[in-house]
Nucleic acid binder design. Structure first.
Lengths: 191, 191
DNA sequence: TGCATCATGTAAAAAGTTACATGATTAG
DNA sequence: CTAATCATGTAACTTTTTACATGATGCA
């Protein structure tokens, strides 16, 4: 009876609920913050959608700047639509995760190829983890001790834990493969 | 210079690398196994793609059955294309995860609404976790002890750890919100 | 003055979803 | 005999990507 996907619409509404932004700003937020974890959208999709949101009265032009810049702000109507979307999650979430798809297909490779796929995952997730840990530490240090943690902190924690999980899993998986079919004779100490 | 996404193509190739299957079988595999974790595709997308894969010589009709059923098998060419795709991951993976998007937007809600969003996550991830743990235990029990673990086991482990992470995080997040703004006066024991 | 970045759009093509359409086989 | 499931397709529509297109501002 009803459709209700259109996550892009709510992603934009959500970002504008945090603070007013232009299409250009929003494009950068997707690229920098959302893309690797949650959702992506190009500017060619964002600008038309902002215009539709404005037509529907969910956002409004809050300020104009140089080079035709238009900063949008969410309206009360927009805020209420966003809230109702947030409080009514679907039964199954849309998931499209090429990394996990590749995990599923690891079984099509032999042990050496599988190791070659896993190795960079171990390395990159370790790097990613360190970066995140660092930026969280910096953030926590600047927050007054004992004060309420900002919501952004919750997302950061989720990202941190997810990378930790990925890293630990990849190390474990490598080990499983090594046990099943060692490349070289294991360098076993005496005893 | 080159495009190279078309993950659906490789998802199909990968599933067919495990065992021959019909479009109908593949549709069910997406629905049952891949959809919640990695990727989804409808039969209306699968059938045309299988025909294209056959035209390109990456798969072939291996068997015909009742009701016009056609079981496809991967060819050597298909296997080699799949391998090269697997060994050449992109710099950034395609990610589209409505659940995580909603996490990002949690900051647009007040504490009560945020709790209302998190509560079902805690409950559902716990259920999911129990189901997965169960099916892994059953699987591990039927596998000869000390034998090489099948690759499917690696994916199952990843799923398990991911749900555990989600669950633990959601519990932690609820607690953080409670600390910042308790709903009712905390039922604090004397002392 | 020239280059990077800011800033917004549209058009064409590809990918994905929903709806329409049809028929065979099998188990109860 | 009839309902569920197996089985494959196409059409219309929506969403997303890639490419085309243009110009202003600020900094070195």
């Amino acid at each position: 009876m009803y459709a209700e996907p259109m996550s892009l619409r709510y992603a934009l509404l959500g970002l504008l609920a945090e603070e007013p932004a232009s299409g250009y700003d929003l494009t950068r937020k997707f690229e920098r913050a959302l893309r690797r974890y949650a959702w992506h959208a190009q500017h060619s999709q964002i600008y038309p959608e902002l215009n539709r949101l404005a037509t529907d009265g969910l956002v409004m032009v809050a300020a104009e700047g140089p080079r035709g810049r238009r900063a949008y702000a969410i309206t009360d109507k927009g805020r209420s639509e966003l809230r109702s979307w947030m409080l009514n999650p679907p039964d199954v979430f849309v998931v499209r995760h090429e990394f996990v798809l590749r995990l599923f297909l690891l079984s099509t490779l032999d042990a050496d190829d599988a190791r070659a796929v896993l190795r960079p995952i171990v390395e990159e997730s370790a790097r990613e983890l360190a970066t995140l840990q660092d930026s969280i530490a910096t953030n926590d240090a600047t927050t007054p001790p004992g004060a309420l943690p900002a919501f952004g902190r919750l997302v950061a924690e989720y990202g941190l834990r997810s990378f930790q999980t990925m890293h630990d899993w990849a190390v474990w998986a490598m080990d499983q493969i090594d046990r099943a079919s060692p490349t070289a004779p294991p360098d076993r100490p005496l005893g």
